[in-house]
Structures are given as C-alpha cells and as structure tokens.
C-alpha cells in the first residue's frame, strides 16, 4: 500500500504540473476581472501539488492503512472490465440483441457459473427483459445490428 501511495503521489504531482502548464494558455478576455480566468486553475494546481507532496511524505514515512485485495479477485475484476470494454466496442456494430446475451454469458462464466442451462437462460432472460423495458416500453433506439430490429 505504501507503493500505491507513492505511485499516486507522483501521478498527482504530474497532473498538477500538466494542468498548471495548460493554464498558461488561457486567454485573458477583455471584460476580465482582477483575478482572471487562470487564477483558480493555478490555485488548484498549487493545492494539488501540496497535497501530493503530503501524500508522498507520509508514504515515505511508511504510514498507511488498508490492505491490498487478493490477486485472484483482482484478476476476476480485470476480466470483467475487459469483457465490458469488448462489449462497448462490439455492441454498436453487432447489435444489442446479439452482443448483450453473449456478454452476459461471458460475465456469468467468468464469475463462476458452470452449469450451462441456467447460464444460457439467465443471459437470454436478462437481455429479453432489458429489451422489453428499454427497447419497447421506453422506446430507446438500441443498436439493431446486422439482423435489423425485431
């Protein structure tokens, strides 16, 4: 966890630096006040840098709480996120009614559902329910995909 705070502290320092640098390009308008549009961003960049330094100092002193999650669980989360990203990429092209049951089945398998019958039934059932509520009841134009709308 100390390492996490070190990494986070350095990242926040970098964010503060980039943000401050970007604030140099803010154009001061004609009708501007004394502080101007760049004041607040620079103040915030300074505040973030100070807080990041405090975080780094604390991490260097070795003071931190919280325990890391188990690697197996983190892999499970990573797999879920990969599936979500794949779904978001594929769904507009493959269509809602094709991509959604496939995605749900994959997530269920990933989360440890081994029996094929409940897996398929739930994947299809959830898709049908979502399609019924959003596609029909609320009239959302869900991506139809190559097979067109039902």
């Amino acid at each position: 966890m100390r390492r996490a705070d070190l990494v986070a502290g350095l990242s926040f320092l970098a964010v503060a630096a980039v943000y401050f640098h970007q604030s140099l390009f803010i154009v001061r308008g004609f009708a501007s006040d004394r502080l101007g549009p760049a004041f607040m961003p620079r103040l915030l960049a300074g505040a973030l840098a100070l807080l990041a330094l405090a975080l780094l100092a604390r991490a260097a002193a070795g003071r931190s709480e919280a325990t890391p999650p188990s690697p197996a669980r983190v892999r499970l989360l990573a797999a879920t996120v990969v599936l979500l990203v794949a779904y978001a990429l594929v769904m507009p092209r493959a269509g809602f009614l094709v991509a959604t049951p496939a995605f749900l089945a994959a997530v269920l398998a990933c989360l440890g559902v081994r029996e094929p019958v409940p897996l398929v039934l739930v994947a299809a059932g959830v898709t049908a329910a979502l399609y019924g509520v959003f596609g029909r009841l609320l009239g959302v134009l869900l991506p139809p995909g190559p097979f067109g709308r039902l």
Binding site: L84, Y87, F96, T100, L104, L108, V113, L130, F134
Partner: peptide, 16 residues
Amino acid sequence: RRPFLLAGILGLVLVG
C-alpha cells in the same frame, strides 16, 4: 445467486 445478480445489474447499467 451473486453472479446472476451482478450480471443483471451490469446489463441494466449498460443499457441505462
């Protein structure tokens, strides 16, 4: 069962 619940909520979030 937890996986069914999580998958259902994920589906709801995505479509929502």
